[in-house]
Design a protein around this nucleic acid. Sequence first.
DNA 1: CGTAGACCCTGCGCGC
DNA 2: TGCGCGCAGGGTCTAC
Length: 274
Amino acid sequence: MPELPEVEVLRRSLEPHLVGERIEGVWVGPADLREAVDRRGLKQAVAGRGIERLRRRSKYLLIDLEGGRTLVVHLGMSGQLLVSEGAEGRDKHEHVAFALASGRRLRFVDPRRFGLVFALPTEDLEFDRHFLHLGPEPLDDLWTGDALRDAARGRRGPVKPFLMNANVVVGVGNIYASEALFRAGVHPKRSVARIAPARWDRLVAAVKAVLSEAIGEGGTTFSDFADGEGQSGYFQVSLNVYGREGEPCGRCGQALRRIVQTGRSTFYCVSCQT
DNA sequence: CGTAGACCCTGCGCGC
DNA sequence: TGCGCGCAGGGTCTAC
């Protein structure tokens, strides 16, 4: 369930529980994730190290450890990262677990196994292939309408997949791409070659607003992370178009539509978005 | 170079 | 009740 807002909410909710903790041991299950987990490398990189801080880049959660190591977690489509009390119990889809000095466990659970867990020297992070080609953070003040317009120069495809391209801007997933386009009044199939500067400004403002509001509303859903129940709850935002095919548009009343672009569902309003 | 499609994997809800 | 199908919020790789 993770787009950028959820990873950020997760970061904020885990931070107070993890900073100051120490990783004592690592358990890795038999199944591969999107990439095979490097058991030996992971254990060597994290065992015995204290957790200094949590950061986020794109949809990656970065757990900085003592001694210049960083533990990287990506949730893929179905991943969860939770803190549980005690050493008992193993979820059916638990793939990695970190034993903490307090006796709690940090567990990575992911039914579809599109997620990632790996560690590397902190200083190598920006050169790692997962991060090397990532575009700007959408909530960064440096990311503006002009920046997005520059990124679109020389391109032609429809704007929705363009927004979801991590080389262009990170963290805009399938839900918030549709939501931001609705808010900006831009049709998802509109070519990026035919978007005026003022609309780029509006689109960037819409992306920032949608993501910020989602982070704000998500703040409560992850509140019980340390209680050991392992239920992180679902991220709920008031979505204007996503998943609402056939329902009336909240602005004009027209039935919302669903189309497929590069294999992903897009939801939009035919009359509000041009 | 940029874009479109297949693919990775499990689970869920739906129609039959 | 069971079965097959389509769908799911991630990213990467290949073919064009």
